[in-house]
Computed example of a mutant assay.
Amino acid sequence: MTPVIRPTNDKAFAETLIRHNMAAYHQQLGWHWDTALFDQQWRELESYKLFVNATPVGVLCLQQEHSAYHIRELQIAPSWQRQGLGTAALGYAEQHARQAGIHRLRLRVFSINPAMALYERMGFRVLTTEGGVQAMERRIV
């Protein structure tokens, strides 16, 4: 399935989806949501909303830093997961980075998150592991 991916300023949609999707991981790891930090970071991100048939189904947030594009958020609504939308969003991020002349994608993911399998399948490799979080990178050729 190929979503339509459009720039967004819909912080409320993004925050609600992220909080919902990450709640179990935060609880398991003893982390707490920081709304002020989210508000600050939101202003620094290039954010995109994913749509299927005009229905918002996900969010992708990117940030360019030096020689890499960082995927700060990739969240798909639970009822739309495992349908290729995450793969499509990663492809979009790669294309976006390539157009900017950037040859690396980076992300951080909870070690207990099943999305690790998607990232590894898409060519991301673990750089570091700390506090239950893995930093991963994929070179764009």
Rank of each mutant, 00 (worst) to 15 (best):
residue 10 D to S: 00
residue 14 A to Y: 05
residue 14 A to H: 13
residue 19 R to L: 05
residue 20 H to D: 00
residue 21 N to V: 03
residue 25 Y to C: 02
residue 25 Y to F: 11
residue 26 H to Q: 09
residue 26 H to T: 03
residue 26 H to W: 04
residue 27 Q to K: 14
residue 30 G to M: 07
residue 31 W to C: 10
residue 36 A to W: 00
residue 37 L to F: 01
residue 38 F to T: 11
residue 43 R to M: 12
residue 44 E to N: 15
residue 52 V to S: 05
residue 53 N to F: 11
residue 59 V to W: 07
residue 60 L to P: 00
residue 63 Q to S: 13
residue 65 E to T: 06
residue 66 H to Q: 14
residue 67 S to T: 14
residue 69 Y to E: 14
residue 73 E to F: 07
residue 76 I to W: 02
residue 80 W to H: 14
residue 80 W to P: 01
residue 87 T to W: 10
residue 88 A to K: 04
residue 91 G to F: 06
residue 92 Y to H: 04
residue 95 Q to K: 15
residue 95 Q to A: 15
residue 96 H to F: 10
residue 99 Q to H: 09
residue 100 A to S: 11
residue 103 H to M: 11
residue 103 H to Y: 10
residue 104 R to H: 15
residue 105 L to S: 07
residue 106 R to M: 07
residue 106 R to D: 06
residue 108 R to C: 10
residue 110 F to V: 01
residue 111 S to D: 15
residue 112 I to S: 12
residue 115 A to P: 09
residue 116 M to C: 12
residue 117 A to Q: 12
residue 122 M to E: 15
residue 123 G to K: 01
residue 124 F to N: 08
residue 125 R to G: 14
residue 127 L to T: 07
residue 127 L to W: 00
residue 132 G to N: 05
residue 133 V to K: 08
residue 133 V to G: 09
residue 133 V to Y: 04
residue 133 V to A: 03
residue 134 Q to P: 10
residue 138 R to H: 02
residue 139 R to W: 10
